[in-house]
Design a protein around this nucleic acid. Structure first.
Lengths: 250, 250
DNA sequence: GGGTAAAGGTCTGAGTTCATACCAATTCGC
DNA sequence: GCGAATTGGTATGAACTCAGACCTTTACCC
């Protein structure tokens, strides 16, 4: 029912509570730090690789170079990157991927816990959707090679920390195969949160083999264009992780 | 394969092109205008309803009151709202919902066209996912009433412009039923883009009846907790709209 | 070796955004 | 009617962000 004109203040739509969210995260500076740190921690830029130049990055992130430089300084100070000047110089990643269980669970606020649970719910929709779309898409040789490479990386990784990064890259690669910017953004956000959870919650990745089998099934389904199967496998994959994490979050 | 340390500049990960996106949209001011305008146009605040006070809105949107007020001034100037001072005053919506076909297609840039197509792809994943989640959730009486009301609104709406707003509210309501912030945000974004498309592309909503039957099926499936059916119906619903729009976009 | 190109480092002035007061108008409750 | 509460309107100074120009360092090329 439409509220009558002039009705009381804030006609009781529950929708409005859900829809009106922060228009913009923090400052540009913090947004840059977060995004770059996430990109590095997720292994998009692995140890030893060189980030794009400051000028290019500032253009990509749509912030001024000054602001980007402040963000870089923060990353440098935090020990994620190192910078060399001059031609051929640039900023290289020095962060060794951390072992998931290495850090004790920081104080988890109730807000954070809610956000994490939310993230698991959203992931269960978005990632299977990405898998389904990727399976539907007609993939050229380059794309298939990219998928295989990402899969081999994760299958080959031995140490937990490296496995974690390769896993993120694998999931992001699938999202990228869909060709949808929004999909990539959604999966990036979800993976970043997932990564945060895995760092904060000491959980033994006991079932890496299990996970790898699912990855292999996923790649097969995508290559065959079997989108229902791709979605189903990814759903199971998400459910397995989520069950583990939810158990530890209460 | 992990790139060797010190390898050339920007080791050729295609992922990075997809992942590094603008860290922050334009200015806070513009973000507010866009979000509020979208909220109003989508009918979350219908004609005649009163927006929350400036102080509350600025807190919700996480911007200063000054900035919010500039956004409000823009909305006022654009004729979307009117403002009265004093206790019991506030800002009321004066925008009559526009008839979709009323405006000629503005010059559609290639970038915008791509974004629109992207949005349709993402919607096809997100909204069926929301429907599925909503069907899984245990809904209390209030939630069910909210769903029914949104459905009745859209079924009752006669004029195209009102139907459009009610339709947006219906879809947003389903998203809200999932209880997931990210889901609401995703559906809001997708619906805003959809709304923009429908305004720019003169398309006769010839099949309102067809659409309404799908809505009814959707509500039934959600109430019964039949999540597979809910997802399937929503997928069909999205596909129908998308086919129409894609045809007109080339 | 010298020139050029490419990268980070520095500076500056204008524009935005913010937090925090305080003012003005209007309504509600007694 | 009158005071208190609520709402929009105004003002100010600090902090942040931006765009652009210019400097310094370093590697590559001839």
């Amino acid at each position: 029912m439409l509220p009558s004109p002039g009705a009381g203040p804030t006609t009781g739509h529950d929708l409005t509570e859900a829809v009106l969210r922060p228009a913009r995260g923090y400052h540009a500076f913090e947004a840059c730090v977060e995004q770059l740190a996430a990109t590095i921690r997720l292994g998009v830029y692995p140890l030893g690789s060189t980030l794009p130049s400051e000028r290019e990055l500032s253009e990509r992130l749509k912030v001024s170079r000054s602001t980007l430089r402040e963000a870089m300084a923060a990353l440098r100070e935090a020990g994620l990157v190192e910078t060399r000047r001059g031609r051929g110089g640039g900023t290289v990643v020095t962060l060794k991927p951390r072992t998931p269980s290495a850090r004790a669970a920081a104080r988890i606020t109730e807000g954070k816990r809610q956000d994490w649970l939310d993230s698991l719910v959203f992931r269960r929709i978005v990632e299977p959707g990405a898998a389904s779309l990727a399976a539907r898409a007609t993939l050229d040789e380059g794309a298939l090679a990219q998928l295989d490479e990402a899969h081999e990386d994760v299958a080959r990784a031995r140490r937990p920390a490296e496995h974690r990064q390769a896993d993120s890259r694998f999931h992001l690669t699938i999202a990228a195969l869909t060709g949808s910017h929004r999909m990539v953004e959604a999966v990036t956000s979800v993976q970043a949160t997932l990564h945060e959870m895995l760092l904060a919650i000491p959980v033994l990745e006991a079932n890496i083999h299990h996970s790898d089998r699912q990855h292999a099934s996923l790649v097969r389904a995508i290559r065959r264009g079997n989108h229902d199967r791709a979605r189903a496998v990814m759903e199971e994959h998400c459910d397995d992780t989520a069950a583990l994490l939810r158990g530890l979050l209460g």
